[in-house]
Write a protein that binds this DNA or RNA. Structure first.
Lengths: 415, 415
DNA sequence: TTGAAAGCGATACCAC
DNA sequence: GTGGTATCGCTTTCAA
């Protein structure tokens, strides 16, 4: 996208217009004709801002067929000094073609003669034209932006997923619009409405709390990609990861090391993947012929504090166990602290396995054995799937299966 | 903002139009009249999408004075069944007023009679009207969105800052647009251009790599808030935190505990605050009459691995030291691991202080003594400052001074 | 106070 | 292949 590179923007308010006053920032493409009036609205809660219209400088328009070659009579002729947002129309004039043609070249909507294409490309480069996504959004219905609903903008796991989305979308000229649902269904819905109001072209939901039904409904209005689920619906692409298999890997690893009494710290039950991880753990135990001990299963919340409390409960209950599998790394970190507080060493006294392979996991003391849950890749894949959806191609992306990362928090049970 | 609550959106493509085909998602407010033609463009790299115009259903317009009461003849009359984006114009019709009046009420741009206001408010509620920010952006020049340039979307420290921004802006009806510069000046500039292309109303730069001069220049075109700096310029609000004082606090704490040989792990030199933290450390030493030993100062990079390597170098160099002050928590985590690997216990053998008070710091083993660098609050304050700037008020926000958080990674030097 | 209408900057129909 | 131009949904003159 060559035309996307150069941008010519206002360095200072255009001084060539009549009535310019002391407004500091040129608002969009308008040159102010005076200060705004009016009070902050009760509805919007905000001052209208320093917007005003070009008072005399009227854009040329040719409502009737007769107004043919008026181009030269345009009031604000282009000059390097009086820079302002360069419009498609300016490019058209400079290249001596119609706006339609420029648009066609920009979007590849139709075949244009090589000569005109070159003229337009040159004009674009010369003027430093950047298409205005806002106008594009209004006119074309597409804003080249994708809404991303995350649980929280500062989530350690989804943070890297967001980076993956960002990188992948960027390559296609799309921008992500991140909003956070804060672990709350209503807020997630509000986020989606906000994104739709902003006319995003599609929405990526990173797991989230919404019901499958709600997601299906949304997908009827807008392309939707959702991670952490497995559901089928028109216009919807779900990218489930096999958390059950991942959890099996973790528990199996502990079993392989000779552990038999393995405590499990469950994730937030509201989270769809929490149950899968629990099933994986129980499944692995069962396959090994071990009856799960309910006392060894502690409810957590996917947060550090939850892991810490879970271990405290385990210890207070005087449960015998030689290993812990925590349904995510964050809780494992809390577990690590709880064990440390009691003077229990990892892995000498207790082996510990996490899940997710967060960046911090490798810097825990000791570095955490965990299940790699590819966050960055998940984001990238979700974005790629969205781009497929948008281009009308059925997305075929799938997530890589989870894999075990053995570090230093687990060891063979001896004695 | 009462009108912001309800949204009526397309559940399925409007079936009342002629020529409807198998398009899946209604693009913006248009009902398709057929499939799109054309190839993906070399410029945009993307398929144009399934956009099409309403073929016959023409919006009513009154170009001449004579076309007075045509409202009733409007082709697509409003009905609950044929829901579609509710426009301001529909509200106007429902309320029996002109679009201008609705706009005035929405924005508080002018005084409107109570009766009309009520009628409009009711119509808004009844139709579930939500103003289209895209159209607003085009027409008014304001998009109610603020660009936020971060180093990375998944930065642990700036993550919480972003949350602060999000929360604060949300209360004013603004949305943040997060973009990442990836620790790279060129990319940061590219981000800013992208944000300007998307017509954000202002930009918040979270520290970043841009030079003060570059920032000043940007501020001439758009309101700008920048954290981690102290610079003055028109249209610019900088929110510097006193990192020097914070670092002094950390080193002073170690001195108070009787430590004399204190190693320092410096932050990424490209970061403006890294130098301040180093100065604070050296200043505290100097005040205590201790000559800094260059061998005890190790360069880090603000990443975990950097902290780990720094400690490795310290240990390999057989330096004598009883405490370490790491210029941020991430490096402190790495330091913790390096010490653990050598069998050195924190705080028994070595005391360790970090900086930032990341969420993970309190779950390190042992929980990290650190300097609280209010990320969330920083974001909130930056957003508030931006809102001030936008409303023409000179921002007076300041950041709270850093403060020491004593946890378990430091102890009094005995013997 | 209120309404009419001219844009904002693109897109994509429709005709040539 | 092109150009004209009617929108998109809203803001803000200007005139009444």
């Amino acid at each position: 996208m060559a035309f996307w590179v150069v941008v010519g923007f206002l360095a200072r308010p255009t001084p060539d217009l009549d009535g310019w006053q002391h407004t500091r920032w040129p608002v969009a493409s308008r040159a102010p004709s005076g200060e705004m009036s009016g009070q902050p609205s009760a509805s919007s809660g905000l001052v209208p801002g320093r917007t005003a219209r070009r008072p005399s400088a009227r854009r040329f328009t040719m409502t009737t067929k007769s107004a043919a070659k008026t181009a030269a009579s345009r009031p604000r002729s282009r000059s390097t000094l009086h820079a302002g947002p360069v419009t498609l129309e300016m490019v058209a004039q400079a290249a001596g073609v119609s706006p339609s043609t420029v648009s066609r070249i920009l979007n590849g909507t139709a075949v244009v003669s090589a000569a005109k294409k070159q003229a337009v490309d040159e004009a674009i480069a010369a003027l430093g034209f950047v298409p205005n996504p806002v106008a594009r959004g209004l006119a074309g219905g597409r804003t080249l932006s994708i809404g991303v609903v995350a649980l929280s903008i500062d989530s350690p796991f989804y943070g890297v997923a967001m980076r993956g989305i960002e990188d992948e979308l960027d390559r296609a000229g799309y921008s992500p619009l991140f909003v956070s649902g804060h672990w709350n269904v209503e807020e997630e819905l509000r986020c989606i409405e906000l994104l739709k109001a902003r006319r995003v072209d599609g929405i990526i939901v990173l797991t989230g709390r919404l019901s499958d039904t709600a997601l299906r409904a949304q997908a009827r209005a807008l392309p939707l990609v959702v991670t952490g689920r497995n559901l089928k619906a028109p216009g919807l692409c779900s990218l489930g990861s096999d958390d059950e298999a991942g959890a099996r890997l973790a528990t199996q690893h502990l079993l392989d090391l000779g552990h038999r009494r393995i405590a499990f710290i469950a994730g937030d039950a509201e989270h769809p993947d929490a149950d899968a991880r629990k099933r994986g753990h129980l499944g692995a135990l069962q396959d090994a012929g071990i009856a799960p001990d309910p006392a060894l299963i502690q409810q957590g919340d996917y947060q550090e504090a939850g892991g810490q409390l879970a271990v405290d409960r385990l210890l207070q209950g005087r449960q015998r166990f030689t290993a812990i599998f925590s349904a995510n790394d964050q809780m494992a970190l809390g577990a690590l602290l709880a064990l440390y507080r009691r003077g229990l060493r990892v892995p000498d006294d207790i082996s510990l396995v996490g899940y997710d392979n967060l960046a911090v996991a490798q810097f825990a003391t000791p570095p955490l054995t965990t299940v790699h849950h590819a966050g960055y890749e998940m984001g990238q894949t979700a974005a790629a799937a969205m781009l497929s959806l948008l281009s009308g191609v059925k997305p075929t992306q799938r997530l890589a299966p989870p894999r075990l990362i053995v570090r230093e928090s687990t060891r063979r049970l001896t004695g």
